[in-house]
Structures are given as structure tokens and as C-alpha cells.
């Protein structure tokens, strides 16, 4: 069952590294998924995107957020903390996608009720497989919060 049959899935990638953005975007493209991938380059932009502030007035509310941890200006930890606190945003699924495999980070993020914690593989083939699994899971297996 795909709840998104009538529209493409909206995914927000929060990532500061251009190369990673490129690789991720390429991963999604090559997986040939019906996904609109939006990108912001730090936590602050992410919050403005989610709150539809400034130039983000017309953006859709993402179905899934892929959040990197280490970013300038406002990092992933702060973003997740703020999303959880915000009554209108706290339902959004947030998947941590990072190169950090520090135990402490994993513990901290789950304590903040992140939806999943995923370690970015170096190998692109593996990464592509991961993106496939990720989208399959989130957009076909899981029931997402219903739209208002």
C-alpha cells in the first residue's frame, strides 16, 4: 500500500556538504523514486523551511526529514530538539543520516525521539541500496501522520 499514490513524496534533506547533497540527490534519481527532494544547508534554514518562513512560504510540509548532525550555524541536535518542542512539527518523522557513528550521538538522538538513525556508507552502491530501502519503508510500510 502506498499512501502517496496521488502525489510524490516530499523529502527534506538537511545537509551542509555539497558533495553529499549531490551524491544523495543522485542516489534518489538513480533509484527512480517518485520523490521531491528538497535541500537546506543548515539547521536554521531547516526550521524556516518547516515553518514556511521567508522564501519558504510556498514549500510543502515534508513527509520525511533526512537530518545530518554536524552542520554550521545550527546543527542537527538543535534542530531535532526544536522540532520535538514545537507542537506543530513534533509529528514529523526525522531520520538522522550521518557519517558519525559515535555511540553517544546515537543515544542522544534516540533520547530526542528521532525516527531512525542511519550511518552513511562510504560505498555508493551501498548508499543507493540504503536509499531504496529507506523510501520503501517510509513511504510504503509505515503509516505517516495524516495530512490536515
Amino acid at each position: 500500500m502506498n499512501i502517496l499514490v496521488d502525489r510524490p513524496a516530499e523529502v527534506l534533506l538537511v545537509e551542509d556538504n555539497d558533495n553529499d547533497v549531490f551524491i544523495t540527490r543522485k542516489g534518489f534519481e538513480e533509484a527512480e523514486l517518485d520523490v521531491n527532494l528538497h535541500h537546506v544547508e543548515n539547521g536554521q534554514e531547516c526550521m524556516r523551511f518547516l515553518r514556511k518562513e521567508g522564501r519558504y512560504v510556498d514549500v510543502p510540509t515534508p513527509d520525511l526529514i533526512l537530518l545530518d548532525l554536524n552542520m554550521p550555524v545550527m546543527d542537527g541536535r538543535e534542530v531535532l530538539t526544536e522540532i520535538v518542542r514545537d507542537g506543530r512539527l513534533c509529528e514529523l518523522p526525522v531520520v538522522i543520516l550521518t557519517t558519525s557513528c559515535g555511540k553517544q550521538d546515537v543515544h542522544d538522538m534516540y533520547k530526542l525521539r528521532c525516527s531512525s538513525y542511519i550511518f552513511k556508507p562510504v560505498d555508493f552502491t551501498q548508499f543507493q541500496r540504503l536509499i531504496q530501502q529507506l523510501t520503501d519503508y517510509w513511504f510504503t510500510v509505515v503509516v505517516l501522520p495524516p495530512e490536515e
Binding site: 556538504n17 558533495n19 553529499d20 551524491i23 543522485k26 562510504v122 555508493f124
Partner: peptide
């Protein structure tokens, strides 16, 4: 690992 991923990726 971040730059490594880039090199590997590209």
C-alpha cells in the same frame, strides 16, 4: 569520512 565518501562516490 565525509570527504572520503565524496571521493568514493564520485
Amino acid at each position: 569520512q565525509t570527504p572520503l565518501r565524496s571521493i568514493a562516490g564520485f
